[in-house]
């Protein structure tokens, strides 16, 4: 009897271990271990081509990147331009689409929602190839339309001025629907009472939007923006297919730059250091974003 009881209490006390353990093991194996591994690697010099193996180099990789590497700063600048050019636009467009879809209650909504996700569920490489064909300056669709409108043809991905905006446009096309879907889900989950109260108080549509919908939606917005922000930092496929970082360095974002060091030049230590800088930058930006929004009180009110 006593043993049984103690077993019961053991079960109650430690049963969670069995539920949590698989997740923890997986997390350790595929997240924590690689993180520590790459952090260690970033403090070493290791080039696969050279037979030497790992040699300790301390912070030399980081110092080289920050003070000697002439292209790192260019890549960083391109990365920030890319972020500024994609995420806010995706957010604005996505919000608009979500608000419009929210109004539609007829049966067609299912069809609209399904067709909307297509760009986001397509393999990014395929998206890249489609846009590469459309951007083709001689045979592409976009220049054909420009010609119909009597506008001069553009050298979309071939000129240093238009290359980055061209990649951004493809990115916006691909990921706006994702933004819209998250926001739409958020809208549909909002409580109805405040809206009814506003209706009773005689608030205008604009007022409802400004004082009720948006504040209530803000936690979802932050999540959506954060996800896209982190994803944008990691954009690779589109650039790989559309421009390979060119012309010059004009579309070479940090992630592509890191890839080159790791898998084209095989400086593994250096590439790890670059990735860690990327991690630091993303984390700092995410924290700043969360903090500013929290301090404004919107996040707390919404959550």
């Amino acid at each position: 009897m006593g043993r049984r009881k103690s077993f019961q209490s053991f079960k109650r006390k430690y049963a969670w271990v069995f539920f949590i353990a698989p997740a923890v093991v997986v997390l350790l194996g595929i997240v924590i271990f690689p993180l520590i591994f790459s952090l260690t690697l970033s403090l070493h010099e290791w080039n696969i081509i050279r037979a030497g193996g790992w040699t300790w180099s301390g912070l030399e990789n980081y110092a080289t990147i920050l003070f000697l590497d002439p292209y790192f700063r260019t890549a960083l600048k391109v990365t920030f331009l890319y972020l500024l050019g994609t995420v806010p636009l995706q957010f604005a467009l996505g919000l608009m689409v979500a608000l419009i879809l929210y109004r539609i209650t007829r049966k067609i909504i299912g069809f609209l929602r399904t067709s909307l996700v297509f760009p986001s569920i397509m393999t990014p490489i395929v998206v890249g190839i489609i846009w590469r064909l459309m951007y083709n300056p001689d045979m592409g669709m976009l220049n054909y339309f420009l010609k119909l409108l009597h506008l001069p043809p553009l050298n979309w991905t071939g000129s240093p001025l238009t290359a980055l905006p061209s990649v951004m446009m493809a990115d916006i096309w691909e990921w706006t629907p994702f933004m819209a879907l998250i926001l739409l889900a958020g809208l549909q989950a909002l409580p109805q009472e405040p809206f009814e109260a506003a209706l009773v108080d005689g608030a205008s549509q604009a007022q409802v939007l400004r004082y009720i919908t948006l504040p209530l939606l803000s936690p979802v917005m932050i999540v959506a923006i954060l996800i896209r922000l982190m994803d944008s930092f990691k954009t690779f496929d589109l650039i790989f297919v559309l421009t390979e970082g060119g012309p010059g360095m004009s579309t070479e974002i940090l992630n592509y730059y890191t890839y080159k060091y790791g898998f084209k030049f095989f400086h593994m230590g250096y590439a790890s250091a670059l990735s860690w800088l990327l991690v630091v930058i993303v984390t700092v930006i995410a924290m700043i974003l969360i903090k500013t929004i929290r301090s404004r009180g919107i996040y707390a009110a919404g959550g």
């Binding site: 081509i49 050279r50 292209y71 071939g158 000129s159 240093p160 970082g245 060119g246 012309p247 010059g248 360095m249 004009s250 080159k260 084209k264 030049f265």
Partner: peptide, 27 residues
């Protein structure tokens, strides 16, 4: 062994000069 790294640096310069964002000598 560093061929691909050198090649990449050269390719950036060529592309910059050809598109006119830098002069050939500067690139």
């Amino acid at each position: 062994a560093p061929y691909s790294e050198l090649a990449d640096a050269l390719e950036v310069a060529l592309s910059e000069a050809m598109t006119g964002s830098k002069s050939a000598s500067r690139a």
